[in-house]
C-alpha cells in the first residue's frame, strides 16, 4: 500500500519535472527559431513554398467551414432574436461573434489539425530518415533552412485564413438572414456597421489570430523536431500537436479576450 503510494508520488514528481524540462527545451527551441530567421526573409521563396503548403492548401476547408458556421449563426441567431422582435440585430450578432471569437478560434483549430499536424509529421519523418542529420553534416543549419521558413509561413498564413473565415462567415449569415429568411438588408448591414468597430473588433481579431499562428506553428515544429525517430514516435507527436495547440488556442483566447474587451 505504502509502496504504491510512493510509486505514485514519484511518478507525479517525475512527470512534473519532465514537463518543466520540456517547457524549457521548447522555449530554447523557439528562441533558436527566432534567432535563425534571417534566411526565411533573405531567401523568401523558401517561406513562399511553405505558405503554399500551410496556407493555400488549407483554403478550401477554411472557406467551407466559414460559410457553414456563418449560416448556422444566421439560423440560430434569427431563432433567438425574433423572440424579442429584434431580427434587425442579426447582422450585429453574426459579425461580432465571427470577428471577435469564432473566426480566429475556429480557423486556428482547423489550421492546427490541417497544417499543424502535417508540419509535425513532416519534420518528424525528416528526422527519422536522417534528413535533418544529413543537413547538419552538410553544414546547413536545419533550424534556419527547414524550421524557420515553416514558422514564418504559419505566422503569415494564420491571420489571412482567419480573416477569410470571418468574411465568408458573414456572407453565410447574410445568405441565411437576408436572402432566405428575409431580414431587411439595409438594417442587416447598417446595424452591423454601427456595432462592429474596426480597431476594437476587427484588429483585435487579427491580433488574436497572429498569436494563435505563432503558438500553433511553434508547437507543431517543436513536436516534430522533438519526436522520437520511430513510426510510433511521429504518430504520438502528431496527436500531441493537435491536442496541445487546441488547448493553447483556447487558453490564449481566454487570456487575450480578458485583456482586449475588459472595458466593455
Amino acid at each position: 500500500m505504502l509502496e504504491r503510494a510512493i510509486t505514485g508520488i514519484r511518478g507525479t514528481g517525475h512527470r512534473v519535472v519532465n514537463g518543466v524540462w520540456r517547457l524549457g527545451y521548447a522555449s530554447r527551441f523557439f528562441l533558436a527559431v527566432l534567432l535563425h530567421s534571417s534566411m526565411s526573409f533573405r531567401r523568401f521563396h523558401l517561406t513562399i513554398k511553405e505558405i503554399y503548403f500551410s496556407g493555400v492548401l488549407s483554403l478550401i476547408i477554411i472557406l467551407v467551414s466559414g460559410l457553414f458556421v456563418g449560416m448556422v449563426l444566421g439560423l440560430q441567431g434569427y431563432e433567438t432574436l425574433q423572440k424579442y422582435g429584434s431580427e434587425s440585430a442579426l447582422g450585429t450578432l453574426v459579425a461580432l461573434s465571427l470577428v471577435r471569437e469564432l473566426g480566429p478560434v475556429l480557423a486556428a483549430l482547423l489550421f492546427a489539425s490541417r497544417a499543424g499536424s502535417a508540419i509535425t509529421a513532416e519534420i518528424g519523418l525528416m528526422k527519422a530518415t536522417e534528413q535533418i542529420s544529413a543537413m547538419e553534416m552538410m553544414a546547413v543549419d536545419p533550424i534556419a533552412r527547414v524550421v524557420a521558413p515553416r514558422f514564418w509561413a504559419g505566422v503569415i498564413s494564420m491571420p489571412l485564413l482567419a480573416a477569410m473565415f470571418s468574411a465568408t462567415g458573414v456572407f453565410g449569415g447574410y445568405l441565411i438572414g437576408v436572402v432566405l429568411i428575409g431580414v431587411d438588408e439595409g438594417q442587416f448591414w447598417s446595424q452591423m456597421q454601427a456595432a462592429v468597430d474596426f480597431r476594437q473588433d476587427v484588429m483585435n481579431g487579427v491580433i488574436k489570430s497572429c498569436v494563435f499562428g505563432v503558438a500553433i506553428t511553434a508547437i507543431a515544429l517543436f513536436e516534430g523536431y522533438d519526436a522520437p525517430p520511430t513510426a510510433e514516435g511521429v504518430s504520438h507527436a502528431t496527436t500531441r500537436t493537435v491536442v496541445t495547440s487546441a488547448l493553447a488556442v483556447l487558453a490564449l483566447d481566454f487570456i487575450l479576450t480578458a485583456f482586449m474587451f475588459r472595458g466593455l
Binding site: 483554403l59 459579425a95 470577428v99 491571420p159 489571412l160 485564413l161 480573416a163 477569410m164 470571418s166 468574411a167 465568408t168 458573414v170 448591414w189 452591423m192 456597421q193 454601427a194 462592429v196 468597430d197 474596426f198 473588433d201 476587427v202 481579431g205 487579427v206
Partner: peptide
Amino acid sequence: AGLAAVLVLAMKVGNL
C-alpha cells in the same frame, strides 16, 4: 484574398 477579406471586414462589416 486574405488582405481583401481584412478589407471587407473593415469597410463592409466594420465602421471604418
